[in-house]
Write a protein that binds this DNA or RNA. Structure first.
Lengths: 214, 214
DNA sequence: TTATAAATCCCTGTTTTCGGGGATGCTTAT
DNA sequence: ATAAGCATCCCCGAAAACAGGGATTTATAA
């Protein structure tokens, strides 16, 4: 029996490419293609009688993006599988998708064979992630756990950012309308908290966290 | 008269997508599609009689990549236009391509309209780069020029690295078997030379240059 | 409601950084 | 050969950072 697919991507070219490789396989039936997630939600909502096996979706789309669409599908229709394809492999996106139970993730520059492999795997009831994606996800989890205990407060983030921007204690105090003693306390606490030795360590931390750009 | 195109990309899906949007326009004639640059070189070398207007190529391909292919084409056949498409927009790649006289550059996630626009522009004899790509290129040039004069000596690199690794002047002096005054001089010179204000600035510079990891 | 965490401020003393100087050899190009 | 650049060392004084305490008020969570 044929499997029913929906594809969502606002890039005509990618869509055409995907359709062309799916056409070579005879056992897929493309129910619907959409330019953004909202259309897919509407389609699924209306066609309740239809068996939908898999939604293939891009991440970046206007209005309702792939992440939101995946969340919505997984919340409302747990028997619809989802495969997300994306240009980029940002740990944040991957994490959010996996946490919301996506069935597979592929980079857009994957080869034809991998696409078909992923679709087959997912329709068979398993998850599909390339080794690279799994590594990114785990690496991210690992780092988060390592740094979990260390939570900086809003003020601390403000202060460490300004430190990394090369301002002195007095300047930061003036900027934030605080006493220089206060900033000194923050610096001291940050050095202890982050287990570093001096401004260089604080600066590196700020860069790693993206509070400032190097 | 129809324009003759060659397309090189090792991703079947992208190729199919591109072909499908080119098919909607009747005035393009696809002479040849290839999985890597070497095939294109061979094709061009053999078919000397044929008028080839434009080669559209991916950057990352096995064996001969898009950058090498573009260089080769521009060196041997100055009347063949080139359009490079890529997943990413790394300043390095963009710079290298523009310096070797590519006629256009597009990200793979561009919309159909932009693809056709780019091809038309290039066939009309002009260059095509999106505003974003131009910005990246110029930004890169600007930064390179800004940093060109600033050349750190071996010793300076050693010292700034250790500073960014959170060692104090005295510790660095001990490590390098130098007087603490020497290290102080280096620190002072570095701050002046690099036009920063303090250790935070030095640390950021060291990270940007890859002397230490954040 | 009662801890706990966050934000703010203060003191003392030591060490380091920072911003000026300048000096001496030793290479390396011009 | 002479200038320029590099590596090394030194001094001084002011400013800032570092290390170690502690205190108060206001949210917030247990």
């Amino acid at each position: 029996m044929k499997h029913n697919l929906i594809i969502a991507d606002d890039h005509k070219m990618f869509l055409d490419g995907l359709l062309s490789i799916l056409k070579t396989e005879s056992n897929y039936n493309i129910l619907y293609t959409a330019k953004h997630g909202g259309h897919v939600k509407k389609y699924i909502t209306i066609n309740t009688e239809e068996k939908i096996d898999l939604v293939i979706t891009d991440v970046t789309m206007p209005e309702v993006d792939g992440i939101a669409l995946n969340k919505w599908i997984k919340k409302t229709n747990r028997n619809i599988k989802t495969l997300v394809v994306s240009m980029h492999n940002s740990p944040k996106i991957i994490d959010e998708l996996i946490e919301s139970n996506v069935d597979g993730y592929l980079q857009k520059n994957a080869q034809k064979e991998e696409f078909l492999q992923a679709i087959e795997t997912i329709l068979g009831g398993e998850k599909y992630f390339s080794k690279e994606i799994k590594d990114i996800y785990l690496q991210n989890k690992f780092e988060k756990n390592k740094e979990k205990e260390i939570k900086l407060t809003k003020r601390e983030v403000e202060v460490i950012s300004l430190i990394a921007e090369e301002f002195t204690t007095q300047e930061i105090a003036d900027k934030l309308f605080l006493s220089k003693h206060t900033i000194e306390s923050y610096r001291k606490n940050l050095i202890t908290k982050l287990n570093v030795r001096n401004l260089a360590g604080l600066t590196k931390y700020a860069i790693k966290k993206g509070y400032v750009s190097s």
